[in-house]
Design a protein around this nucleic acid. Sequence first.
RNA 1: GGGGUUGUAGUUAAGAUUGGUUAUAACGCCGGCCUGUCAAGCCGGAGGCCGCGGGUUCAAGUCCCGUCAACCCCGCCA
Length: 599
Amino acid sequence: MKLDQLENWQRTKKCEEVSTQDVGTEQIVMGWVNTRRDHGGVIFCDLRDYSGIVQIVFGQQHEEKAFLKADSVRTEYVLAVRGIVAKRDPETINPKMKTGAIEIHVLELRLLNNCKMLPFQIGDEHQDISEKNRLKYRILDLRRASMQKNLMMRSKAAQVIRDFFYRNQFFEIETPVLTKSTPEGARDFLVPSRVNSGRFFALPQSPQLFKQMLMVSGYDRYFQIVKCFRDEDLRGNRQPEFTQIDIELSFTNQDQILDLIEAMMANLFKETIGFEIPLPIPRMTYQEAMDGYGSDAPDLRFGLKLIDLSSTVANCKFKVFGDAIKNGGVVKAIRVPGGNSFSRKDLDDLTDFVRIYRAKGMAYVKIREEGWQSPITKFFSEEEIRQINEVTGATVGDLILFGADTEKIVNDSLGNLRKEVAQRTGLIKEDEFNFVWVTEFPLFEFDEEEKRFSSSHHPFTMPNESDLDQWENEDPARIKSEAYDLVLNGVELGGGSIRIHRKDLQERIFKLLSIKDEEAQAKFGFFLDALEQGAPPHGGLALGFDRIMMFLSNAKSIRDVIAFPKTQQASCLLTEAPSEVDTTQLKELGLAIRKPKLS
RNA sequence: GGGGUUGUAGUUAAGAUUGGUUAUAACGCCGGCCUGUCAAGCCGGAGGCCGCGGGUUCAAGUCCCGUCAACCCCGCCA
């Protein structure tokens, strides 16, 4: 089949821009054949480009040469057509199409490229394609309208974000991608250096230290939309390389930062999807979040709050509860209004569900007219039952679900259980955007494996100074920090902190983290120097751009807002990366592959 | 590292409880007919390593074991 040259043709309209106003004019449109309907004497094609679809008509009465040529046209061929825009007869208007009132009568067809049979149909939104095929044939997947919509929305969002920061006197400054490995946080992706054999760069987990050093250099306000890399296992909303909106400000405090970011988010949601975020975004402390929701990223679209019953049941005869508390754990409960209707199977399912989070079981009580209906009723005195009813606020028809274990397990299991119950009972309004700031994170968490403290946020986070003075030697776990997270519908969008800008403070923190002076000097010497070279007070945060895009695009997977994502096994089905490399490449780098043991 | 779901024409699925003739459908593809369709229609046709490997059996898409891949989750990760 002979293909045509584009020659000097220029597009005059995008497909979906052709309208009734153009009737009678000659236009040139270009795109892909979405569908083809051959009626013998007349051939209809829906021509598609990124803007949408317009119907082009090949008929003998319009131009015989084009009509004959159109006989060989097939789905996904690439065409350029010149034709007259015509009004459709009233009975042939298609109200489902934006361009359904008009069509283009083709005078000249240029066949720019053909297309072999594809693994799946581009225009067919009625058939779900498996994730495997979508990723393997990503080019075709990205040609589909839903993916184009998502990626165009992403482009728009990036533009809106940049506009906002430029308006607010921020500078967009690039930071290195080849940088230094740091011991804290996630596993690094390493890049061997050829010039410095035996040494490695690391890809940045975030540009954290660079943006702080830019503050020391006096750039005042920095932002960057930047790729970050973490070599950890993937999830539905986690990719090994992802994009952050990275922000840092000098001479600022937490309130200023939160106010600014709220304004940025409100602007973003308004300009992209027309949603007005009610400001200010409510704030809650880490402690309130953990106590009431069992999570530092609480979903506030529904109630089902966790209620602490530890003191109420401390002396009850039910061994599971009593032992949990004796061993330093807690007993908490969720009251499910109307949960009386849960079947035995529902409750078994929920019990299995909490086991995922290492709960050993789940006690439950149905509140009936005649009193408690539950396998554990017999362990409780009337007074205890009265107290539990009172503390939980349970009334007839309700269900109470209990968790008893260490605080971590109870919070994990009940925190997820409340989401599960809300999901099952239709309590979650899917179209709601419920933002919350979580503040006053603990500075450290205790690493049980390594028997030492590690940073909750990162080691450069400003501690609450009076907490530090008070608990430094007694109980560092009680030191709070000036760190904060932004949470939307139970999903952490990002977080940040006020940073340490004084060396003496930074050294005290390293000491608490059991990082020795020499080690600190080797890993962060350049940064500790910066703190002695006139570092201003500063702070900032980073937001997960991909996660934000999931909300703006209503996407279920992070892969649907990233053009070329990785699979859960961290591979790219399109390019088949990662791949083996030539031995000469390895040699140059001074590397050898250790053969996996054959077993 | 662990738990779960899935894997059958190009695609999406049925067939798996109860092993048994030529593995079924829709869409797509190819050919023909058709001047108003728009998920076009009608007629005809091609298309299969039932993920892969092993086992049980007279006989396996179906039962058993292993393995690979995609997805969801725990651990991990801000």
